[in-house]
């Protein structure tokens, strides 16, 4: 049974409609891509793409060893990085459980003229990798063992 010409015509019309609408949506999304991005990266901020003194979101990794907590308050400061550029972040509040050094975060707040990002909300961004705790311990131990082996070789 070969396809009926009428049906063929209908199929072509529908597919053309779908392609047309798809193209329009694609162009609109492309034009809006700056607004759809949830956050600015440290590189965007360094390049001056982020507005000053306006509520924006910034996202990146917490640099290892950069977290400084105040002794008498919830005030915390850390460096957010995308491993190309850094941004200093100041926050006064309760951090999410998954906040830790080397983890991704998204902070909402205002970028000051002095380059410090003053956050009023910090969200933890986790990745798509899941692991049982024993596996992480094993990896850490293997890492330490290889480091020690490297040191003793020197």
């Amino acid at each position: 049974m070969v396809m009926h010409p009428k049906r063929k015509k209908k199929l072509i019309i529908i597919l053309a409609l779908l392609t047309g609408v798809g193209l329009i949506v694609g162009l609109v999304l492309y034009a809006l891509s700056q607004n759809i991005n949830l956050f600015f990266s440290p590189s965007d901020i360094a390049a001056g793409k982020a507005p000053l003194e306006q509520r924006i979101r910034a996202g990146g990794m917490v640099r290892e060893g950069s977290v400084v907590r105040a002794q008498d308050s919830l005030q915390v400061e850390f460096v957010m990085t995308d491993y190309a550029q850094d941004v200093k972040v100041a926050f006064d509040g309760i951090l999410p459980d998954l906040f830790r050094e080397g983890q991704g975060i998204v902070a909402q707040g205002k970028l000051q003229a002095n380059g410090v990002f003053v956050a009023d909300e910090v969200l933890a961004k986790h990745d798509e990798n899941y692991m049982p705790p024993e596996v992480t311990e094993a990896i850490d131990q293997a890492h330490k063992a290889s480091q020690q082996a490297g040191e003793s070789a020197q």
Binding site: L38, L98, V106, E121, L123, A124, H126
Partner: peptide, 12 residues
């Protein structure tokens, strides 16, 4: 809520 710290965010 427990992982990010929020129920909802207007991301894509």
């Amino acid at each position: 809520k427990p992982t990010w710290g929020t129920y909802w965010v207007w991301d894509a």
